[in-house]
Design a protein around this nucleic acid. Structure first.
Lengths: 237, 237
DNA sequence: ATTACTAGCTTCCGAGTAC
DNA sequence: TGTACTCGGAAGCTAGTAA
């Protein structure tokens, strides 16, 4: 009995269901729902996984108490590594996002000019952002996907601060170039307290981007995030 | 025709094979080898994936040129997220490693005492390591797994330096507690230039760990890495 | 050399049902 | 309530082979 992909994915769901604890209590009906199979199939999976030594079961009343073995966890981690490997290849080519210029520069621009942020920008990015951010609406789902992946990328971290009246959240900066280098010292910023969704991008630079590129609302901009998650030097406290 | 897990995994392998580029050139025989199926099955997979809109093919001589669509990449990323979700649950409960004390404290101890490192330890960890590291041999494959996962964890980064005679590599420190808190200010260290394999662990602490715990070679030690990858504050430059 | 169809065997899936 | 067996139909896999 050789476990196949579905078996390993079932194992992964069991791990998740058990919140990583030592053992899981779940009925075959529940499991069937989770993996989108019948109760009967779920039952069969459990029997087969047990035979393969990837989990152990002990009767607990009518139910079973399931313990995933080390080998079981290994199988899940292996599968994860395989898929991760294929995705990291996307990382290495860098994140590229296509967007359309939209208005809405009021808010970001104001925040970026606050002294509590400006000194940190100077120190960590080497420049002060121009008083006005570039707001982009991402154009395709590939870009939105890249945007999501950015969360796991290394960033230049700008701490939040508190003044007499209120507190301000952190800002993560992802150094980037625009339009193949036409602007080479820009950064995508992600605010702790933002109201935008993942299909929007906010970009800063030391100069006025719109003027420099000669663009206006509705024009296309190509953003290329330059830091990759491969460099261990970027992770420190 | 609904693609199943094997289809998505095939897609992942195609991504990897194509090194993330826009298109892949691969024969069905090659693909069959990669996914451990026959040439015929590989061919069928490609036909089905195309029908499902997850890739497109154009004839290039006898071969095909394969382009994975956005939806195709999405499917791979989705699968990745699912599995990631199930193992992040392991993360949240923290990394726990079981090891056995072995000798071999010479090298690490010497390096850790160098001024170029010591000042950074003081600044970033808040203590100077005791002159002697604890070397552990990991006891089970689960621990070795955890050891590998550590690479993706946030760490306290100690820069390398150069003195008159040679240069010294960086050190990554992963704060940890030993034996359920018997030692609560320790750190697993990973050296840029190490000769150990992944089944070994090197631990520092402000005091002599062996004396404090009253342990000797061959005794068991439980290591619990306390930082989790969830905290965005840890990623800065 | 390729891709991909067909035939036949194997495995998977779920309804029914025993316990 | 539970788990898990049988069994018929569906889907998957490969060898042979056409193109």
């Amino acid at each position: 009995m050789h476990p196949n992909l579905q078996h390993i994915l079932t194992l992964a769901h069991l791990l998740e269901f058990g919140k990583g604890g030592a053992c899981v209590e779940i009925t075959t009906t529940e499991l069937g729902n989770i993996i989108s199979r019948s109760q009967q199939s779920a039952s069969k999976y459990l029997v087969e996984l047990e035979k393969a030594g990837l989990l152990e079961r002990t009767k607990a009343g009518q139910k079973f108490r399931i313990m995933i073995t080390d080998r079981g966890v290994d199988e899940v981690l292996n599968l994860h590594e395989t898929i991760k490997g294929s995705i990291e290849v996307l990382d290495r080519s860098g994140l590229q996002l296509d967007g359309k210029v939209v208005s809405g520069m009021g808010e970001g621009a104001y925040y970026m000019s606050l002294e509590g942020y400006r000194s940190q920008f100077n120190e960590k990015l080497g420049y002060e952002p121009y008083a006005g951010t570039l707001n982009l609406k991402l154009l395709n789902q590939s870009s939105v996907r890249m945007r999501s992946m950015m969360d796991n990328y290394p960033s230049v971290f700008i701490r939040g601060f508190t003044d007499s009246s209120r507190s301000y959240g952190w800002v993560k900066c992802y150094p980037a170039i625009l339009n193949d280098g036409a602007v080479d010292k820009a950064a995508v910023i992600v605010l702790e307290r933002t109201h935008y969704d993942n299909s929007m991008l906010e970009v800063i630079a030391p100069i006025g981007i719109k003027d420099l590129l000669g663009i206006k609302n509705g024009d296309f901009v190509k953003v290329f995030v330059t830091m990759t998650p491969k460099d261990p030097l970027l992770k420190t406290t």
